[in-house]
Design a protein around this nucleic acid. Structure first.
Lengths: 355, 355
DNA sequence: CCCCGCTCTGGTATCGCTACCATCCTCCCG
DNA sequence: CGGGAGGATGGTAGCGATACCAGAGCGGGG
């Protein structure tokens, strides 16, 4: 019999195992496991004892072991490759956090929007062992990607699609309502000559934002018809749109751009024409992307809790994947989260109005 | 004896185990393991057989099991909380990728720069079981954080510190050389009246970039003294600096800002004054952050391979942590990676110069 | 010709945790 | 007061992989 301790247990970090806790608390490892995993079948007294032991010893479960034993640790794909990618960093933070919580692994895969690239990306994901995928915008609009993923029997969650297909799991804000709120905000400030820059026609959120805007304008009734330009969510397209909006009289007193990049472009063009923001022109955006708080004056915009949305997307995915293993389909595959109008310096009452 | 198959193996995804491969290839699981892990002690014939079996069966090792068996799967902390945070998304992509490669878990922790917040963040990291930490800028400059981490016996890798302490593992570009190259680029275009906006005095990269710039200016000899303003890496500070640089004659023909946010501010201010970029004024930045390619005209800047740097940081960390378990200290704890000057539209020959 | 050392391969014992089953005990009901 | 339901606990057997050791085959030096 050669059974010397194979490894010096002392020095190693984080080497406190469930057995140590069990011994310390005077219970069996199983009971500790139950406490740690929040099973109901533990008496309060025992639970307290164990929790104390856990705290005293600084126990933290070994994820690898846990995953191995419980057949968890699935891999979840996150397809990214966002042209207007201010989302990504916050998105990753939220997704990674949720993934850690659930003990699943997050696999990143870059993906262009061409069919060929999509196919390749999905294939890499599949061969990487992913069982589900999170699709941030604008990838969630790609039918090719969706088809490829579904063909591979993957669970999918779309994030921030404006009007998602009913059969798709989805986490989003109410773009329509948010655009309405922003428009009402402009009206409340006293603006009447409004300009609007639409988003990319391929993304369903664009339509929603536009509908929100125009519904409020129509509701108000008395306003002059707003000036509208088509944009494509890029700074450059915003510049072109702004040029048109600002070149011909009557110049709007407020411009609502469908995202922040375009709003920043409007500000740049306004400044070039000698207009001060917000004194001569109010500019508002949508998304609260990085650029909104980077530039000066700061952009009044709609904040999306991107990290939270990404987190919920992963939650949804995990539920779907695990649920699918035994139970029925997921209860409510659509999740609406709260947006927030963030007032910074780029919006004010129109010139010549009392404060 | 009750030994019915506890679980239907068939339906589960990715359930091909090392044993299946071994059986298929007619070897022992150990041999498969050796092949998969690239051990040298496998004959070529066997290796080929096994590899074929792996491919045929679509085998992919179970990370949880692997980590458990080999005592890997450590947790690595990533402290973030970057005020000028264009880094983060690329950074995360690179770090997560490397973490996946090594089979370690990445734990994110947000961290403000105040001592109290730092302490709290580090404590959370420790209690989360992290054994090492990656410090992106500007956190790597904080002595408080470093001290806290070292007190907790964590391995640390700083990323993109301009002049890191010699005893710290570090991945960075040569800020000095990059600034030199950019300055030479401006001179080569024919610019002589230069402006420079310094970075935040608390970050050592600022000093390096400034040194790089001025060394080339001095080398050149014949130039008029450059105009220099202090900035703080923010858009706002760039705006203030630009205002000063552009308000007083002689106005520079080219302005080199120590980062992209400030360079974007210079462009904004230039446009406000009716100067066209690059026709009337050349503007260049540093970092190649998101804003550099968002705005128009695109910013000529120094590209840092952020994802790669983050990945190498994790590599370094893993090596240090695993190495520390048995071997000596890490060989070369400093890693320089290649930067690249990215020429976009914001830099051109000065006005009135032949092309 | 034997022994040593090297390459290559297989067996066995875990890694830390949880699933499942067996057990014990309490309390309620008839 | 016996039997059954169900709460609370412990024992045992893996999850899928690697570490370590043992052993088989082979070539070369003494």
């Amino acid at each position: 019999m050669n059974k010397p301790a194979r490894k010096t247990r002392s020095g190693a970090r984080g080497s406190i195992t469930i057995k140590d806790v069990a011994r310390y608390a005077g219970v069996s490892p199983m009971t500790v496991s139950r406490v740690v995993n929040g099973s109901q079948y533990v008496s309060d007294a025992t639970r307290q004892t164990v929790l104390q032991a856990v705290r005293r010893l600084g126990y933290s479960p070994n994820i690898a072991a846990r995953n191995l034993a419980s057949a968890r640790g699935e891999r979840m794909g996150l397809l990214y490759g966002n042209p207007s990618a201010s989302y990504l960093s916050e998105f990753l933070v939220g997704a990674l956090d949720a993934a850690t919580r659930h003990g699943v692994q997050l696999v990143l895969e870059k993906c262009e929007l061409t069919p060929a690239a999509s196919r390749r990306a999905v294939r890499r994901l599949v061969s990487g062992g992913a069982v589900g995928a999170v699709l941030p915008p604008p990838l969630c609009e790609s039918t090719v990607i969706r088809a490829e993923l579904q063909a591979a029997h993957m669970q999918i969650v779309a994030v921030a699609a404006g009007r998602p297909p009913a059969d798709l799991m989805c986490v989003r804000i109410d773009d329509f309502a948010a655009a309405q709120e922003m428009t009402r905000y402009l009206l409340a400030l006293g603006h009447e000559r409004l300009g609007f820059i639409k988003g990319h026609p391929n993304q369903s959120a664009s339509e929603e934002r536009w509908r929100g805007f125009s519904s409020v304008v129509q509701e108000a009734g008395h306003l002059p018809a707003p000036r509208v330009e088509q944009g494509f969510f890029t700074f450059r397209s915003g510049l072109d749109a702004a040029r048109k909006l600002l070149a011909t009289e009557p110049v709007p007193t407020a411009i609502f751009a469908s995202n922040d990049d375009m709003a920043a472009a409007v500000m740049a063009e306004a400044h070039r024409r000698g207009l001060e923001v917000p004194h001569d022109l109010t500019v508002v955006g949508f998304d609260d992307s990085l650029i909104a708080s980077t530039i000066w004056p700061g952009l009044t915009t709609i904040h999306q809790p991107i990290a939270q949305m990404a987190g919920e997307a992963v939650d949804l995915l995990v539920t779907a994947v695990r649920g699918g293993k035994g139970h029925g389909p997921v209860e409510s595959p659509h999740r609406l989260v709260a947006y927030e109008l963030v007032a910074r310096e780029s919006a004010a009452r129109p010139k010549g109005t009392a404060d």
